[in-house]
Design a protein around this nucleic acid. Structure first.
Length: 586
RNA sequence: GCACCGGUAGCUCAGCUGGAUAGAGCACCAGACUACGAAUCUGGGGGUCGGGAGUUCGAAUCUUCCCCGGUGCGCCA
C-alpha cells in the first residue's frame, strides 16, 4: 500500500464531492493535485497544495477551497485533523492507529513491500558497462557497472520488464589491434623472443594466456600462415577470453547481464541491420552526402574537407550532422550504434536506457537523434552519464594513466574493500556528479561509512530478535505472530516517526524509478537506519522505550513487529542496490 | 569557439521535477555506556543556495545573460 496514493485518493474524492455539491465548478480537472510530506513535521503528516493549484481554474480564493476541503477530509475515519495554513496549504494529520496499522501492512506484504506498478510490464532495455573486450575492467568502468545494475534492479522492483544488455565492440580496428597483440603473445608462447611490445599494440600481460591457449589448440600451425588466416582466429580467441575475464570481473561485483550483444552480429547471418536502419532513415529523408564543417576553436593542421554519407541529426537538436560512412565507404562506429538501436527497437523495447561514462558525453545528442528518428519520437530513450571516479588513498589522489600501465583494475578495488562497500559508495552520489572514492573511508567500520551504518542497523535489529528469544521463554516471533501483534502499543513519537518513514518507501521507489536515480534509495536507507539507531538510543536513556520491554510480552512483540518491518525495508532496499543485509557484523 | 555536467555550511554532498523558517555527514564545542551491540545517540554554533534580470500566490529548483571548475568536440571504437 502506498500511503501517498491513498491520501491523494482521499483528497480527490473530497474535491469531486465538492464539485458534486456545487461548492466548486464541476468542469475543472482535479486530477493533478498531490500530497507530500511537509518539511516541518509539526505541520502534520501530509500537506496538499490542491487549493492553490485549483484557485485560478475555479475562480475562487485558495483559502476558501482549503476550508471546504478541510471539512471533507476531517470526515474520513483515519484523519485526525486538517488545518489550513499559509497561502492555502492544507495540512493533514492521521490518527496513530493509521500509522500503527502500517506495520501490519508492511509485514503482510513481505518482500513485495515497496514494489509498485509504475512500469506496468513495459519492455525495458538497460545497456551498461559495454567496455571494449580488449582487457580487464578498470575502476573507471566500475561506477557505470554498478549504476546500471542498480537501475535495472530498481526498474524491475517498480514493475518494468527489464533486459540487461552489454554491447560487445567486437568489430572494427580496435579488435584487430587486439588480434595482432595476441599473435605476438602466441609467438612468445612458442618460445620466440618477441622483445618489447611495439607502440600501438596492447602490452598487458593478461594477453599471455590467450597466446598460450592458441598454442594449446593449434600448436605452431598458425605461425607460418598469412595474416588473413590467423587474424580471425586470434581475434575470436582473444575476444572470447577477454569476455570471460570481464564476466568474472562483473560477477565479483554481483552483476549479470541477460544479453551480450555482438557488434559484429549486426552484419551476420544474411542480414545487415546497419543498412536496414540506414534505409529507414533514408526513407525519412535524413540521409545525404555532404561535407562537414571544420570544428572551430582548436587548430587542426591535417583537416581536409571530405564528402561522406551523413545523418541529418541537426533535425533533432544535434550540433552538426553526423557521419554514417567514412570517406572510403565503410561504416563509422556511429553507424553500428544506429543499427544496434534499430535492433533494440525491433525487439520491442519501448523504454531504452543507456549508461555512458563521462568520456562519451559528446555522443548523447547524436544517439538521441538517431533513436528519435528511427522510432518517430515514440521510444522513451534516456542516457544516464556517470561522471568520473577519483581514487584517494590516505587523502592522496591515486594517479592513473593508461600509457603508464598504472590504472587500477576493478578487481583490485573489489578485492581490497569488498563488494558491498564498492557498490554502495558508487550509488551514494548522484550519477552525474563526480565521485571521490577513499579507500580508507570505505573500509572503515563507523558512522563515517554509510554502507556500514545501514548494514549495522539491520544487524542490530537481528540482534534484538536473538536477545528477545532469551528474555521471554517460548516467544513466538514468526511472521504470523508478529502480524497479530497489538500494534496499538506503539505510541512513542519516535516509533511513529520510524513507521512514517517506512511508509514512504513505495513512494521513494516510485520517484527514484521514474527519475532513473538509484542514489535516492541509498540516501533513504541511510535515513531509515538513522531513525532506528535514534530510537534504540532513546532506550538507553529511558529503559521503558527499549525494544525488549521487561515483563511485557505484548509490548515487546509489538516492537519486534516494528523492527521486523524496518528490517524488511532495509533488506529490500539494499537488495535493490545489490548489497547484502547481514544479520551480524562481526 | 561550441556542447554537456557541476557550483548549496570550513570540507564532502542531499534537497523527492515549483512549496511553508534550505537539510545531513565530517570537522569544531558540550553531553550520554552497572549496554536490547556506545561500531551508537543527544544538543550547539555555522549559509547573499556562484552573480544579475525575469516568469507567479511562491524559485536552490523553471527562462535568460554572465562568472568559475570538470569533460567532450570531423571518417577511434
Amino acid at each position: 500500500m502506498n500511503v501517498f496514493a491513498h491520501v491523494e485518493g482521499l483528497i480527490r474524492a473530497s474535491l469531486s464531492a465538492m464539485q458534486a455539491d456545487g461548492v466548486m465548478p464541476a468542469d475543472i480537472d482535479v486530477s493533478g493535485i498531490e500530497a507530500e510530506t511537509p518539511r516541518d513535521s509539526s505541520h502534520g503528516d501530509f500537506a496538499t497544495n490542491a487549493a492553490m493549484v485549483l484557485a485560478k481554474k475555479a475562480g475562487m480564493k485558495p483559502r476558501d477551497i482549503a476550508e471546504a476541503l478541510k471539512v471533507r477530509m476531517e470526515a474520513f475515519e483515519d484523519v485526525e485533523k486538517a488545518d489550513v495554513a499559509g497561502p492555502g496549504f492544507l495540512n493533514i494529520s492521521f490518527k496513530p492507529e493509521f500509522w500503527q496499522s502500517m506495520v501490519g501492512t508492511i509485514l503482510a506484504a513481505g518482500e513485495l513491500y515497496g514494489q509498485v506498478d509504475l512500469g506496468k510490464g513495459t519492455k525495458t532495455n538497460v545497456e551498461y558497462v559495454s567496455a571494449n573486450p580488449t582487457g580487464p575492467m578498470h575502476v573507471g568502468h566500475c561506477r557505470g557497472a554498478v549504476f546500471g545494475d542498480a537501475l535495472a534492479r530498481l526498474l524491475e522492483f517498480a514493475g518494468y520488464d527489464v533486459t540487461r544488455e552489454y554491447y560487445v565492440n567486437d568489430a572494427g580496428g580496435q579488435v584487430d589491434v587486439l588480434a595482432r597483440s595476441v599473435f605476438l603473445r602466441y609467438r612468445e608462447a612458442l618460445g620466440e623472443d618477441i622483445g618489447a611490445i611495439p607502440e600501438g599494440l596492447y602490452p598487458g600481460d593478461y594477453l599471455k594466456p590467450v597466446g598460450e591457449a592458441l598454442v594449446a589448440e593449434y600448436g605452431d600451425k598458425l605461425k607460418s600462415r598469412e595474416a588473413a588466416d590467423w587474424m580471425p582466429v586470434a581475434r575470436a580467441k582473444a575476444i572470447e577470453m577477454m569476455m570471460v575475464m570481464i564476466r568474472e570481473d562483473l560477477a565479483a561485483l554481483n552483476i549479470q547481464h541477460d544479453v551480450f550483444f555482438s557488434e559484429a552480429s549486426l552484419q551476420a547471418n544474411g542480414r545487415d541491420r546497419i543498412s536496414e536502419a540506414i534505409d529507414v532513415l533514408k526513407s525519412k529523408g535524413l540521409i545525404y552526402e555532404g561535407v562537414l564543417p571544420k570544428p572551430k576553436g582548436h587548430e587542426d593542421e591535417e583537416w581536409e574537407e571530405r564528402e561522406q554519407v551523413l545523418f541529418r541529426s541537426t533535425e533533432f537538436g544535434d550540433d552538426v550532422d553526423r557521419a554514417i560512412a567514412k570517406s572510403d565507404g565503410s561504416y563509422t562506429y556511429f553507424a553500428g550504434d544506429v543499427g544496434y538501436h534499430y535492433d533494440k527497437l525491433q525487439r520491442g523495447f519501448s523504454h531504452i536506457i543507456n549508461v555512458f561514462g563521462a568520456d562519451h558525453i559528446g555522443y548523447i545528442k547524436r544517439m538521441k537523434s538517431a533513436v528519435a528518428a528511427l522510432s518517430d519520437g515514440k521510444a522513451d530513450f534516456d542516457i544516464k552519464v556517470c561522471q568520473l571516479v577519483k581514487l584517494f588513498r590516505a587523502g592522496q589522489a591515486v594517479k592513473m594513466g593508461k600509457r603508464l600501465g598504472t590504472f587500477v583494475t576493478l578487481r583490485e578495488v573489489v578485492d581490497e574493500v569488498g563488494r558491498d562497500p564498492v557498490r554502495f559508495m558508487m550509488l551514494y552520489r548522484k550519477n552525474d556528479a563526480p565521485l571521490d572514492f577513499d579507500f580508507a573511508q570505505v573500509t572503515e567500520q563507523s558512522k563515517d561509512n554509510p554502507v556500514f551504518y545501514v548494514q549495522y542497523a539491520h544487524a542490530r535489529s537481528a540482534s534484538v530478535f536473538r536477545n528477545a528469544a532469551e528474555a521471554f521463554e517460548g516467544l513466538d516471533t514468526s511472521p504470523d505472530a508478529l502480524t497479530q501483534a497489538e500494534l496499538s502499543k506503539l505510541t512513542d513519537p519516535g516509533e511513529i516517526e520510524l513507521i512514517k518513514m517506512l511508509a514512504s518507501f513505495p513512494r521513494l521507489i516510485e520517484g527514484a524509478a521514474r527519475a532513473h536515480e538509484p542514489h535516492r534509495l541509498a540516501f533513504y536507507l541511510y535515513e531509515v537506519a538513522n531513525a532506528l539507531h535514534s530510537q534504540w538510543a532513546r532506550g538507553n536513556d529511558s529503559p521503558q522505550l527499549r525494544f525488549i520491554a521487561q515483563g511485557d510480552r505484548g509490548l515487546t512483540v509489538a516492537r519486534l513487529a516494528m523492527i521486523a518491518a524496518t528490517q524488511r525495508v532495509i533488506s529490500s532496499g539494499l537488495g535493490v542496490l545489490g548489497v547484502e543485509a547481514p544479520d551480524a557484523m562481526r
